[in-house]
């Protein structure tokens, strides 16, 4: 019952103070979600086990080094670490392709298609989510212009008409939107590459 009542933040704080049992509680509480998340990406029990282990090694090291800022977001933080390790795993596999000998020969393991692979798909989704979140932080007028130009593919003339400003103003807003986006990317230390 105590386990249900104690918040993650309290357990993390206890753990940082030296209570090792708190870590056990945190792992027990979140193991299923983290493990399932990793398994849903890699579909391999052994790899999932490795990534799960590496995730918590990173968690333990960061907590012990005092590098964790408590914002009441323990689980999202751990999930993010797991997510990044999944990406690392796919990246490593791309450099050193592994042949799966567990079943029959699969021609698709040596032939690649032109579509995005799982790693690129994950990165693409992550980048798109990050960009959408960043756009939300822009001032309303800049956000409107950027959304109309990039997502709705409207011309600056159309944007100017719709927002009832001159074309130059629309262009200026777009310029500031991009400048501010870059600033936000730097501020949040986000890597947007695929």
């Amino acid at each position: 019952m105590k386990d249900v009542l104690t918040s993650d933040a309290t357990l993390v704080s206890d753990y940082i103070k030296g209570n090792e049992a708190a870590l056990s509680q945190l792992i027990t509480r979140h193991q299923q979600r983290i493990y399932s998340f990793v398994y849903s990406k890699v579909y391999d029990k052994d790899i999932t086990e490795d990534i799960f282990q590496d995730t918590f090694i990173k968690v333990i090291r960061t907590l012990k080094r005092g590098g964790y800022n408590e914002e009441g977001k323990f689980l999202p933080w751990v999930m993010r670490i797991a997510h990044n390790l999944v990406i690392d795993h796919f990246r490593k596999n791309k450099r050193m392709p592994k042949f799966d000998n567990s079943g029959d020969f699969n021609i698709f393991s040596v032939l690649s298609d032109g579509d995005l692979n799982a790693e690129k798909q994950i990165i693409k989704e992550q980048v798109e989510t990050d960009v959408r979140r960043l756009i939300e932080e822009l001032p309303e007028d800049q956000k409107d212009v950027l959304v109309m130009r990039i997502y709705k593919e409207m011309s600056f003339k159309e944007i100017a008409l719709k927002t009832d400003v001159s074309i130059n103003t629309a262009l200026g807003r777009m310029r500031y939107a991009l400048i501010n986006l870059r600033k936000l990317i730097d501020k949040h230390n986000i890597i947007l590459t695929n």
Partner: peptide
Amino acid sequence: ESCPKKETI
């Protein structure tokens, strides 16, 4: 499928 091994923990 949804839980790590006891050894890992």
